[in-house]
Design a protein around this nucleic acid. Structure first.
Length: 530
RNA sequence: GGCCCCUUCGACUAGCGGUUAGGUCACCACCCUUUCAAGGUGGCGGCACGGGUUCGAAUCCCGUAGGGGUCACCA
């Protein structure tokens, strides 16, 4: 029999990491067994329904590359895939239960139910619907319903005995039947509840394995009873551990960022998020921790799922992301992904080799794509702001800057080795520490003291731009190193921009194509994620 | 509170009767070094507790404790 799994999110709020997590495991399980993965929209809650949520959900899976085989947009043999479009089906099935006496119409108002709850609480009795509506005669039920009295449809559940089901990961789970309430199957607004809709749909859509979160275990007996009432075989149940907040409660947006869109905006890569999620409760048989969804699928074994609820650790997610950024993805790939973000930040460049060079030297320092955007600023700005540490370096390095400016302008072989030799020769001739020369230079080139190797910076920026920046820094020093007072800094920038405008011809020219080629040839990053 | 699930370093996990309990993140130290990173090396740190079963338990059983979930006309 073909394996069929599903992800059945409800369109409320932001696309949730838990949905991605459960979706991943359903997808991988189905693919591992050559089966199908179905996307079904559980939009039976009219209060919480958000129209844009469906599209965002679909986009999330698209971004992740977890593509359903059937769903609301791509269709399939078992549609429709929106529960709101299947109301007639649920109606029919509810009627079936009504006719066979396995369900009944209940007429309690919200106030009555609330009073019942309070009474139960006061007496210390078990909470939940007590089945009082069962005693209303059938004829009366039908008559009141026909008269248009609002009501719900509830399942008749056994009062004694136990309900048992098998969870693939836990074995037999039994629960006293008295714990299972006469749950609402149909709400008074004409929509089915999750319980009814999910059982009916899973059966009709041929779902063979229900992989869902652990929080569903308590209502599984009810589902089992429903399958029984319909005379259907239940699918196999596999309850995944719940993702946890740092305090071990189940993930919630109050305590953790649960929005996949948010991570996406922060520059988290889908590969990294997926890989990270995969390690939540699952591990490769060979202990590998970096792997693609395809590789996971190849080796997937649901029985290797561990049951302790894993904490969603942002630090580790960022580590995974950094790993993909600097090691697992080819340079070109990272550049492709960051390019639109650079453009959005207003960065411009003439030659794609320049972009490649920038990403190449920056990515060991970045954990997310946004880090790259933040750090790349000085590669694309005409006018630098010097932070405090940089100003200090400039103050101490004026003479070295003047010397290097001269040396650099005379340099004939402007490639990595040429620049590097020049710098080293100069430092040696001066008989000072490298830092004494390079830190002021770094400050002049970037406006900050935390940046890539000075040689790399000079080679990437190019002779002309490097000289221009050193000159600007010297001017800045002459101006007495004005501090970061916003107003003054603004005027300062304005004046400098005007002055530079005419002196400048073209800069930001890439001289780094050669370097990039070299890096690509020697780098081991051509194979992509593994 | 009732019911149910879970329990190996701070975190993610390997282990499925015999291991000096392994790896990764984080943290710390050292190395590299031109700052910051990255990288390399090393370190810190764990089988919740108590009973059994067994020649032998992290591994099997029971109990206790702790954590979590759930008790809606939400999913």
């Amino acid at each position: 029999m073909e394996v069929v799994t599903r992800i059945a999110p409800s369109p409320t709020g932001d696309p949730h990491v838990g949905t991605a997590y459960i979706g991943l495991f359903n997808y991988v399980f189905a693919k591992r067994h050559g089966g199908r993965f179905v996307f079904r929209l559980e939009d039976t809650d009219r209060q919480r329904y958000q129209p844009e949520a469906e599209q965002r959900l679909l986009e999330m899976f698209e971004w992740l590359g977890i593509e359903p085989d059937e769903g609301p947009e791509l269709g399939g043999a078992n549609g429709p895939y929106r529960q709101s479009e299947r109301l007639e089906i649920y109606r029919r099935h509810a009627d079936l239960l009504l006719e066979t006496g396995k369900a009944y119409r209940a007429f309690e108002t919200a106030e009555e139910l609330e009073a019942m709850r309070l009474e139960q609480k006061r007496l210390g009795r078990p909470l939940g619907y007590d089945g009082r509506g069962r005693s209303v005669p059938r004829e009366e039920q039908e008559r009141r319903a026909a008269a248009g009295e609002p009501h719900v449809i509830r399942l008749v559940t056994p009062d004694e005995g136990e309900v048992t089901f098998v969870d693939r990961l836990r074995g037999e789970v039994s629960i006293p039947a008295s714990e299972v309430r006469d749950q609402v199957l149909f709400k008074s607004d004409g929509y089915p509840t999750y319980h009814l809709a999910n059982v009916v749909d899973d059966h009709l859509m041929g779902v063979t394995h229900v992989i869902r979160a652990e929080e569903w275990i308590p209502s599984t007996p009810l589902h089992v009873l429903l399958y029984r009432a319909f005379g259907w075989d239940a699918p196999e149940f596999i309850h995944m551990p719940l993702l946890r907040n740092p305090d071990r409660s189940k993930v919630s947006k109050r305590k953790l960022d649960t929005s996949v869109d948010s991570y996406r905006q922060q520059g988290i890569l889908p590969e990294a998020l997926l890989n990270f999620l995969a390690t939540m409760g699952w591990s490769m048989p060979d202990g590998r921790e970096f792997f693609s969804v395809a590789e996971m699928t190849e080796r997937f074994d649901i029985d290797r799922v561990s049951l302790g609820g894993p904490i969603f650790d942002l630090k580790k997610l960022r580590f995974f992301n950094a790993k993909y950024l600097r090691d697992l993805l080819p340079l070109e790939e990272v550049a492709d992904r960051v390019e639109p973000l650079f453009r959005a930040a207003g960065y411009e460049w003439d030659d794609d080799d320049y972009l490649l060079d920038v990403v190449d030297v920056l990515r060991p320092r970045a954990e997310t794509l946004m880090d790259l955007v933040d750090q790349a600023g000085y590669f694309f700005r005409d006018t630098l702001r010097y932070d405090e540490a940089a100003r200090k370096q400039l103050a101490a390095g004026q003479s070295h800057l003047q010397d290097v400016e001269r040396e650099l302008s005379m340099l004939e072989f402007f490639d990595y080795d040429g620049v590097d030799d020049m710098l080293r020769d100069y430092v040696q001739a001066q008989a000072v520490g490298m830092g004494k020369v390079l830190m002021p230079l770094r400050a002049a080139l970037t406006g900050t003291t935390q940046a890539p190797s000075v040689t790399d910076l000079i080679v990437i920026l190019g002779k002309e731009e490097s000289l221009r920046r050193i000159g600007a820094a010297l001017t800045f020093i002459d101006a007495g190193l004005p501090d970061d007072d916003p107003q003054r800094a603004l005027e300062e920038e304005k004046a400098r921009k005007a002055a530079e405008a005419e002196a400048r011809t073209s800069h930001k020219k890439s001289v780094g194509a050669e370097r990039a080629a070299k890096a690509r040839a020697s780098g081991a990053s051509e194979e992509g994620p593994r």
